[in-house]
Design a protein around this nucleic acid. Structure first.
Lengths: 201, 201, 201, 201
DNA sequence: GGCTAATCGAGACGGTACGTCCCGTCTTTAG
DNA sequence: CTAAAGACGGGACGTACCGTCTCGATTAGCC
């Protein structure tokens, strides 16, 4: 919490200090407007008005729409939290559970505009891309789960854990892009795609 | 060729017929400007000027920037062609060769702005998304190659060919989004992610 | 009647002859649209649509909006007819009767937009100006009445009949321009302005 | 001066104050363009470009071309000043001198486009009409001169001074409308039209 | 009766201007 | 020194009409 504060509060200064109320209002307004209207159609002017704040106050602290959205994601205002794969069963079961939840969230009619907005923001802004990738699991959590599987012998040590992780997250993003309202049951198939089909018997 | 003509020329009409010269000029201008400046920064006004055409002539035939870009893709103006997986060796070799080429193309410094532009366009426009997906191989060619592999016994019949295909293309798109300039040698790893590691010996 | 026909029908020709139906429809549409929306806001495109006629058919026969309106006036479609001063009583009575009627017409709420439209058209188009001037009486009828008055000794032979006429019509136009909804009773005062006050006794 | 400022500067405000430089540049550009090209052919876009100003800055402060021209007239940028009838001789001489000057100005080839432009503007915009009328003398100066004439017995007390005034100005406007390049010597005749012919002997 | 021309409706075309929205910057007053 | 308010020059939006042009379908005098 402390370090988040440090990112926006200057240490030594004279005169008024940055208003936390404004910052909160701006991020809240951004969140609301992204959800309502999507990333394109999002305007700085609209955010300032919605937040009852001067335009300059926005420009003073954020260089672009993308940066604003990135900070909203960091604050967890746009996505519920990180989607973490469980460590409770077999690799296959854990991955399937994780992917099923994510697939359900991502293709829900209420969320698909949001998800496309986040991809749009990610294209413009590298920080958003990183954060999106990380929220969906690739950057660490998913890799960790796979690494664990290697450690316990569920996967051979030659398994390309990074690429498996990216394949799963990538497949997810492709669903968003193509507007495919995939059945959550496809989670099993996607997991089979990277772990191989379930052995019969 | 005939059918392409039919898509834009009405058969029964009164009044002057649509100008093929204008249509070509507009698509050419769009292509040039997307390549030069990217999808955002692409403006209808700029396209009309570049094509030496009235703005209304653009609006008369295309509802949005996205539709324009979609038609450019259909005409093969933006991407070289379809990237087709070969059918010349083992599945693993064919997929690796295909992915290596695509990975090289996609992460080439000259192309990455274009690829992000195409994703941006895909977000706005479903037709672009479909066409992008199809050009990168998912929709049919790649699935066909995998189906063939099932037929000749290289893959078990239970292999989820659609999901394997989407995982590979998705991984590719994730490279674009995260601006990862992946080494083409990672192609092998990605293929291993879906086919399993190379068996030793 | 014959000569009116001659103005639009070529004498020697081959091929289809000018359609009287179209001409009538166009003039009718022009009349309706001027009355509804005023001279500005009048568009050739609107006229063609309203008349169910091709745009070119308008342009083929009339060079401008002004010319169209001028022809409408010639056909008596826009103004009831000419306002002619009577020759039934004294000059003063006749002029007063004439001016009273005109003042009533011109400042009627239903007509004032029309009258301003006609002035607007007159500014753009000399023919409209002449026709407007003539309809209001200046060019001949009013001058004739005044000349008659000179002949019968009601006015001295040195009376500047043209200038008296233009003063009366000019005063009328000024009422239109300034949007003054003058009481028709002012007719007497205007006549007194040019004939001198009524002699007492 | 102070009061002119007050008409456009709000007293209580927050944020930057209206730029006097922009206002002046816009009115100057409007004046130049009306004189060069006439009231029709005057475009907001052209004014903004000529004034090196954003279009919105024009729209922010003026609702229409007419309002712009009206303000130019108020600032005395379009017409030299008011044309005031002198009070130096007999009524007849004073009116003749005044009308001669005005007739000369109005029908000068250099000014007749301007005058028609002003009438066009007057039709669209009541404020222009009032200002035009007042500049040409009707609203007060001319009436005052006539009232003085009544006071000193040059005119009978029953003389309709307002109507005489409107007749003279109206006659002037009719010259403009009909594009009559009247000889300034007609001034005498017009004056005779309202004062009666010069008594012989 | 076929040929030739002109007219007609429809509407596409290259343009100009409209009036609006937003951009990112600058200027002012208040705290 | 921050903040709100908002004016500024600028760029693009999508629309309305301009006047010209190009179609296929009539229509009417002429061989």
């Amino acid at each position: 919490m402390m370090d988040v504060v440090d990112t926006y509060r200057q240490t030594a200064h004279r005169g008024a200090v940055r208003s936390e109320a404004s910052r909160t209002a701006i991020l809240g307004a951004t969140t609301r407007l992204v959800l309502e209207r999507g990333y394109d159609h999002l305007t700085i002017e609209g955010i300032a008005t919605e937040a009852k704040v001067g335009k300059q106050t926005v420009y003073r602290w954020w260089p672009s729409k993308g940066a604003l959205v990135a900070e909203c994601m960091l604050e967890g205002l746009l996505l519920p939290a990180e989607f973490l794969p469980p460590t409770t069963g077999t690799l296959r079961d854990d991955l399937t559970a994780w992917l099923r939840e994510l697939l359900g969230f991502v293709t829900a009619p209420a969320n698909d505009t949001l998800m496309r907005s986040l991809i749009a923001a990610a294209i413009e802004n590298e920080t958003v891309a990183e954060r999106l990738n990380s929220t969906l699991g690739t950057s660490s959590a998913l890799v960790n789960r796979l690494t664990l599987a290697v450690a316990v012998g569920e996967l051979p040590s030659s398994a390309p854990v990074t690429e498996i992780s990216e394949s799963l997250v990538g497949a997810l993003i492709l669903q968003i892009l193509t507007r495919t309202h995939s059945d959550p049951d496809r989670a099993e198939s996607f997991v089979s795609a990277v772990l191989g089909p379930v052995e019969p018997g």
